[in-house]
Simulated assay, not measured.
Amino acid sequence: MSFLSPSLRLENLPSEPIMTLDHIPEEKRYNKNNIVAKWCAPINGKMYRIELEHGTTTGRRMIWVNGKEVLRRDWMFKLVGEDTFYIDQARCIIRVDPAPGFRYEYSLYIDGKPHEQYTDELTKQYRLWLVSIEDNEYRIMLELDTVNLFVNDQLRTETGEFVDGGTDTKFTENGNEFILQARSSGNKLDGLTHTLIANGEVIPEAKILEVMQEPFSILSST
């Protein structure tokens, strides 16, 4: 005689753990208090915030990119190792290694290079300006090799107009007028110099490596 109710019989029990987060909406699964490591990197003209959740008691490992879940592993008994994911065709790996004192070290690799080396090399290929006009924020990036221009991660289609000494690329956003000037520096080693003008005002160039130290100031959480 069985004292189990019909719904609790072994054949009715789930074959997989039920303590997952699938039933919770993604926006509620994200909790910045659970983040143990975060990085910021420019990839193909766009800025990305990469965050890792490493639950040493729950066995859960989650990776977020700009506030979106890209990888989740539940009930992991091995707390160290690596996970691979892709951002805009760039191969990314997060490694979890043991550290003294029952702690862990977290490392990010992008296209086979450590995060620090990758960003140091890549930031030399870009120019960045941060513009705040009234309630609008603009992040403008220029890729030097391709001359691709991105405004808030969106590739612009405008082309430069030839002027005396270089080119002017004009575009508008929310009624604001921008001009990206490219001028010869007069030195072959230095190449072109770039100046951004917004509504007639020259915008100082931002230092990408410094900006990446505070990724939340330039990236939304969604």
Rank of each mutant, 00 (worst) to 15 (best):
E105S: 13
R91G: 08
N31S: 15
D111N: 15
Y30L: 10
G112W: 09
F85W: 05
T123K: 13
L122S: 14
L130F: 09
G112S: 07
A99V: 05
S107L: 08
E121Q: 14
I87F: 09
I110C: 04
D83R: 13
I35L: 13
T123V: 04
R91I: 04
I110T: 05
G101N: 10
I93N: 13
A99H: 14
G55C: 05
R72G: 04
T57M: 10
Y104M: 03
R29C: 07
L122C: 10
K38E: 15
D111I: 04
R103W: 08
F77V: 08
L79F: 01
G101C: 06
G55K: 02
T123H: 12
R95L: 05
V96Y: 00
T56S: 13
L71Y: 13
R127V: 00
Q125R: 15
R72T: 10
V65A: 11
I94F: 00
D74W: 06
H115P: 06
A37Y: 06
T57K: 15
C40W: 05
T123Q: 12
I94P: 00
G59H: 09
I35F: 14
A90W: 04
V36Y: 04
Y106M: 02
W39D: 00
R49P: 10
N66M: 00
R73L: 03
D83Q: 14
E82Q: 09
V96F: 00
N66T: 02
V65E: 05
E51H: 07
P100C: 08
D111A: 11
I94L: 00
M76T: 08
E105H: 14
V80H: 13
G59R: 07
G59T: 06
D97A: 08
Q125D: 09
F77R: 15
W64G: 01
W64E: 01
G55Q: 03
Y109C: 02
P98K: 14
V80R: 12
T58R: 13
N31G: 13
I110A: 03
G59C: 05
N33Y: 14
F77C: 09
M62A: 14
Q125F: 07
P100F: 06
T58I: 02
S132K: 11
Q89I: 03
I87W: 06
T57P: 07
W75D: 08
R49A: 10
L130N: 10
E69N: 12
D74N: 11
S107E: 12
R72P: 02
R73S: 06
L128D: 01
Q125E: 12
Q117K: 15
E82Y: 07
F102L: 09
I110P: 00
A99M: 06
I87V: 10
A90E: 08
A99I: 04
I43V: 13
I35Q: 14
P98E: 13
V36D: 08
G55N: 07
Q125H: 14
